[in-house]
Design a protein around this nucleic acid. Structure first.
Lengths: 140, 140
DNA sequence: AAAAATATGCAACTAAGTTGCATTTTCTGA
DNA sequence: TCAGAAAATGCAACTTAGTTGCATATTTTT
């Protein structure tokens, strides 16, 4: 048996040299359990402390993004979506798949998208992000 | 010598069965001349009629998006960015490149990104969108 | 040229996110 | 182990990006 989710979150915060606050641990745990990127309000409703102020949640996310533990995912919906960065490499974030039928978004964590070349007409390509659309297994 | 930009825009609107209004023609022309996706306010300031209401611009863009002449681009920013759809195929929008140094975004119109497979673990992949980051020719 | 269809502008509104500031919590080191 | 420094939290007020309802104006159709 490995370490608990709590311990894992504590370790991540320690390593990032961030204060271990209730809000940070709780937000990390929510993101660990999510199947796809979440908005602030979706995170809020999954938090144990229901009355948590939205400013705190935004600032918590901001601090986690700043140290690279969390990413802001695509924003096709007018709101930021947050997710753990642990399945992303330096050169590529894991791709996201959005079902055009049911609308849900999945992280394709173990899918490896072909990479763009490193150079193109004077552009130096360092990082790529991919968004896929189609039908999810449930709707296909 | 080919047809003028005006005539081109008129033709596009006719084909899409949209009324040919000053706002639509002007917005299309702005998008034709842009080097990358633009926000509503960036479009507004490039319009000949400076006092054009933002609601009109949004509704104009909405109608152009509805008929497929314009796309909302895949960007990492809080505001929507619009661009002509004429370099996109059914399976893929042309990729966007954002320079991490100067911040400008370029449409890589003739760049052909490798495609994702059509099927993956039960997902049917119909469309892909790619965002690249790195250094643009001017900053590299 | 009149009627029908559609687009425009205004004011007021909403959703998502941000800022300033006073208070509370977390960490550090004597 | 506790005092003080550093950082996080909550509140209220604000900003930005986009939307809605409705009266008026423009475009197309007949």
């Amino acid at each position: 048996m490995g370490i608990s989710l709590d311990e894992k979150c504590h370790g991540m915060l320690k390593q990032a040299q961030l204060y271990r606050t209730e809000a940070r641990v709780a937000v990390l745990k929510v993101l660990f359990e999510a199947v796809g990127p979440l908005r602030q309000d979706q995170i809020a409703e999954r938090l144990p402390d229901k009355g948590r102020n939205k400013v705190t949640i935004y600032r918590t996310l901001e601090s986690l993004v700043a140290v690279g533990l969390v990413h802001r995912a695509f924003m096709q919906e007018r709101a930021w979506h947050f997710e753990l960065a642990h399945h992303c490499t330096d050169r590529q974030c894991h791709p996201h798949f959005t079902c055009s039928n049911c609308g849900t978004t999945h992280c394709l964590k173990d899918f490896s998208m072909p990479m763009a070349p490193r150079f193109y007409k004077g552009f130096v390509i360092q990082h790529q992000q991919v968004r896929l659309e189609g039908l999810c297994p449930a709707c296909a």
